[in-house]
Simulated assay, not measured.
Amino acid sequence: MSDPIGRPTAAVMSPLAGPQWRPLLRRGAVNAVMCIAVGLAVYAAQRQHLGVSIAYSLCIGVPCWLFIDVSRILVARRLHAADPGSTPARYGWPGWRWMAVCVVGGVALAYPLGVQLARALTGHPVQPSSGSLPAYVSLLGLSLAVAVGASYFFYSANRVSSADAEAQAARRLATEHQLRLLQAQLEPHMLFNTLANLRALIALDPPAAQAMLDRLIAFLRASLSASRTEWHSLAAEFARLDDYLQLMQVRMGPRLQAHFELPADLAAEPVPPLLLQPLVENAIQHGLEPAVDGGRLEVSAARDDGGLKLVVRDTGVGLQSAPAGRHHTGFGLEQVRQRLAAVYGGRASLRLAAAGPGPGTVAEIHLPHTVRDGTADRPDR
């Protein structure tokens, strides 16, 4: 499944899926910092050999963490495979009982290896006294205490990040459902307007109505599959507009003159489907059709302060001739505003104004900068 703003998401991806190297290295870096802090604390307490204290802390702490973390992941994977519905195991946490086994087992295995490694590197035995059993036991206890503390720290951080990931996924899913609902409302609205035009044309000019019906079938065949996607290129959006205007030209004839301006470097820019069509419908229905001689419809795209400006301009009767507020509160315009808010938040806008100085209306959509993510297009949020 893909998220509303173009991209694989909707379901929360389990941290157990895919490679674990990157988060493992991040935890390793945090663990190394903890080990250095423990080494400094031991040196401050004993005032003997700063380098030796830090070396022992790193040589013991890093293997302990590695044994514990790797065993935790392996156990969590096995538990998740046995019970996929287990949320803690899904996020790499096997539960405190298994975690206690991982901690004790990891320390028991890694501690003697770390001591031998530190002794080989520094040439110094376990501090504070030469290899005494109390010193060995006290350092073992310290290692165990630090391992428990680190495990709890990573467990708490993982719960916070997991909760945040689930919250973000829920928000994306809600936005996706909202967009699908808006699009599902918009498509019948466009079809209803087209059929209403066709019905009027049947009585006035049956051959033209037949031609319009043929165009409608071709338009629906080309558009329905495209309208089911959540993102498509600006070139595809302009192609659908051209199909629609070809359909309207059967009804209006030479009274409708259309012009497109799409720079080549913007053709691949991602936009939601059917974003401009409601504005084009609005311009024809309220601007050009009421005009005796029809007029010109221009659709253009351009860069605007790093973002994208989409303009639908007509030379029709203008806002002053429309029923009060109709241009600002029509169904299509409201749908465009809601879709912009759902996809881009407050970073996109729709402005409707008199074209000036002559008659007509201009509708401008301002979109933020977009980036390409793999095979999907997404707004740069």
Rank of each mutant, 00 (worst) to 15 (best):
D3A: 04
P4I: 15
P4G: 07
R7G: 00
M13E: 06
L16D: 03
L16C: 02
P19K: 05
P23Q: 03
P23G: 10
P23A: 01
R26W: 14
R27S: 09
G28T: 11
A32W: 09
V33F: 04
M34L: 12
I36Q: 01
I36C: 07
V38I: 13
G39A: 07
A41G: 10
V42M: 05
Y43N: 01
A45D: 01
H49E: 12
I54C: 00
Y56N: 02
S57M: 13
W65C: 04
F67T: 08
A76N: 04
R77G: 11
A81D: 12
A81N: 06
A82E: 10
A82I: 06
S86E: 04
P88F: 04
C102P: 02
V103S: 00
V104Y: 06
G105H: 08
G105P: 12
G105F: 14
G106Q: 02
V107Q: 01
V107F: 06
L109H: 07
Y111G: 00
Y111F: 15
P112T: 01
L113V: 14
L113K: 05
L121E: 05
T122H: 01
P128M: 11
S130M: 12
G131H: 11
S132V: 01
V137L: 15
S138R: 11
L140T: 06
L140I: 02
G141T: 09
A147K: 14
F154A: 05
F154N: 06
S156P: 03
A157L: 14
A157W: 13
S161N: 13
A163F: 14
A165G: 03
A170W: 15
T175A: 10
L179T: 13
L181K: 11
A184C: 05
Q185E: 14
L186R: 03
L191R: 03
N193I: 10
A196S: 12
L198S: 01
I202G: 05
A208N: 08
A209T: 08
A218C: 08
F219E: 02
F219W: 14
A222M: 06
A226K: 13
Q246G: 11
V250M: 07
R251Q: 09
R251Y: 08
H259C: 07
A267D: 04
A268G: 08
V271F: 06
L274H: 04
L276W: 06
Q277R: 09
P278G: 12
L279F: 09
G287E: 02
E289I: 09
P290A: 11
V292P: 12
G294Y: 04
L297T: 07
A301W: 00
R303N: 04
D304S: 15
G306E: 12
K309M: 07
V312H: 07
T315P: 01
T315K: 12
V317T: 05
G318C: 01
Q320N: 02
S321E: 09
A322R: 15
P323C: 05
P323A: 10
A324L: 12
A324R: 14
G325E: 12
T329V: 09
G330H: 15
F331Y: 06
R337W: 03
A341M: 05
A342W: 03
G346D: 11
G346M: 05
R347D: 13
S349W: 10
L352T: 15
A354C: 00
G358K: 07
G358E: 13
G360A: 04
G360C: 11
H366S: 00
V371W: 02
R372C: 06
D373C: 12
D373G: 03
D377C: 06
R378F: 01
P379T: 15
P379G: 14
R381M: 00
R381Q: 03
